[in-house]
Design a protein around this nucleic acid. Structure first.
Lengths: 353, 353
DNA sequence: TTGTAAGCGTTATCAA
DNA sequence: TTGATAACGCTTACAA
């Protein structure tokens, strides 16, 4: 064995620390730290020397230690109602990808649609010293009290998709109103004159806005809104079937339905088919979310795409802006993404009715 | 204002540390630490005193500091190929839920099906001082070299679903072979005599095992395997269409298809419908994964459920076992989940053909 | 340009 | 049963 190449220099099992590098090179830890963090006041020669050894010994920085010292980690906390369906996984996908590109890792939390868990999640994330928190609210969250602590600690906070309106917060949202407007308008342009609406819980911004957009479109066609044609529910598949049944039993049933969610419009489609009512000839349908199955049903379902991936990216971008703007006076930042209408068979009347 | 209740005692903006509690009570930090971590050597009175003040001042432990000191955090790292479709989001959902119950938070990483990213993810997670790593392998991962470091550091490592076989690792997998066997057997019992198979990349355990199960079933019916009937691909929707086309062009086409994935069987269904071939009367179909859309197509698709949620839970449970067994000699632990066949219209022949 | 040394908030060791 | 003190690995005034 070559004595000039002792075992010590091989990649060891236990992590190499800055102190190890410093000792090996006969310099101070400060120097090593500066070299590694690309600090300005360091000689290029020393820097190279350090970097070379670091690579050789496969030095890996201990982020925990840095985080503890700086009081801020390279972790981003994300709170979502749940990780299922198409929307949230896709947004998380976008967030993780963008965050990693910026050198952050993502801690994920589920509130399971309960504000109590949301509160616990906040504590967990604060204890983990996250650099920022990205949240989409639980269904029953009605105020911001539990976010006050985050703000007070000066930790960047960005809401996405599900937000509480009227408060002074940073947020990334879809222009739900516009999406609903376009979709309803499309149905009207296809010749529908009695368009119904499956509406979701109105305390949630997204559903409120979709209903607004629906009403906007009616107005732009000089059609009076008819509360009889608006069915409120939680937008499940079963409620879609039920809602459709209800609409059909009206003395004057609709000739089109715009639903604020895809599951419910699928339910409607199933019911209509079971009764031999033709879609779109007798009743045209359109939904919201552009779920995977909308391109599979027969007929395929028209729906509004929510730009899940972009939403994730935009949320991280907004977070990064806040990081860079730290210290400067707070002002509210909002990003509004434009929805995209995917027109499919379920809403395409062949010419005027 | 009551001078005995100074402002200081109100919940402050900046986190309360153990030192604060110690000073306030006139005891040492050690005592506080012991009280909070439920150490054995502490008087019950002191303990109560500490806990009470901790609650009052809303003390929140700094996990980073503890992690730094102990060299181990309350974080679990998860590496998945991507967060999309039904399977991985559901597993992650299961993991997050189980982990949180056990007091752990989850850091999520995507390999994007590339072993190079997988390597980076490992580094990231090790630097974050995670307590353990849960992995489902990227498509092009062919060896375990990059996991050696994890093992050497004594950090619990559990693989799930996509593993490399033959190596001595802890893993949670689905009994893919059994699932495939049951499904193919079901097709044969429905009267099919020439069952084809859409097979995935054979270096992945899951696809290899599904093919095996398919062959097992043929053998149990004394049917000779026919390589002509096995179509290899990446199991996309388009490849399903293409594969079906190919099978139909055979001199002696199949009367049933078992696919190792749902997208491809959907492709097959679409192609058959476009050609006016009836499912299941002319050709019966069955897939694998029990994707959401299988219950929506017409006819609805028979498929094997992968127990995503349970897989997540089992993976965390196995991790916890490893944590508790630390120090004891290593032995390989494997959990095999039983798949569940969902029989739907696409495979139900009405009586013998 | 480089070094010294004091923390960050815990836990672990040893002594009282 | 308690307490003083030294780590854990890193950053950052402040000094040289």
């Amino acid at each position: 064995m070559n004595p000039r190449k002792p075992k010590k220099e091989e990649v060891p099992d236990s992590p190499v620390s800055m102190a190890d590098l410093a000792k090996e090179l006969g310099v101070s830890m400060t120097t090593v730290s500066r070299a590694l963090s690309d600090h300005y006041s360091i000689g290029p020669a020393t820097k190279q020397k350090v970097l070379k050894l670091a690579k050789k010994l496969n030095y890996q920085p201990n982020h925990m230690a840095a985080a503890l010292r700086k009081g801020k980690s390279k972790l981003i906390g994300v709170i979502v109602p749940y990780i299922e369906g198409r929307f949230f996984p896709s947004v998380v996908h976008g967030i993780e990808t963008a965050a990693r590109k910026a050198g952050f890792s993502v801690i994920i939390c589920q509130s399971n649609e309960d504000v109590a868990n949301e509160r616990k999640n906040i504590e967990t994330l604060l204890n983990a010293q996250v650099a920022g928190i990205l949240v989409s609210l639980a269904r029953n969250t009605r105020d911001f009290k539990h976010f006050e602590k985050v703000r007070k600690r000066g930790i960047p906070l960005v809401f996405f998709d599900r937000i509480l309106e009227g408060d002074n917060v940073n947020a990334v949202v879809l222009n739900d109103r516009e999406g609903a407007f376009q979709t309803t308008k499309h149905l009207l342009e296809q010749g529908c004159r009695r368009v119904a609406h499956f509406a979701g819980p109105q305390h949630l911004n997204i559903y409120k806005n979709r209903r607004q957009g629906y009403l906007d479109a009616l107005r732009s066609f000089n059609l009076p809104p008819d509360e009889e044609l608006i069915v409120y529910s939680d937008m499940t598949l079963e409620q879609g079937q039920e809602g459709m049944k209800q609409l059909l039993s009206l003395p004057n049933p609709p000739d089109g339905v715009f639903a604020a969610g895809d599951s419910s419009i699928l339910g409607a489609l199933q019911l209509l088919k079971s009764r031999g009512i033709r879609v779109p000839q007798d009743i045209a349908l359109a939904g919201f979310s552009n779920e995977g199955f909308t391109a599979i049903t027969e007929p395929m379902l028209t729906s509004v795409d929510q730009r899940c991936e972009e939403m994730g990216q935009a949320t991280v971008r907004l977070f990064m802006e806040l990081v860079e703007a730290k210290g400067t006076p707070f002002y509210q930042r909002q990003v509004v993404l434009q929805p995209q209408l995917f027109i499919r068979e379920s809403s395409l009347h062949s010419g005027k009715r």
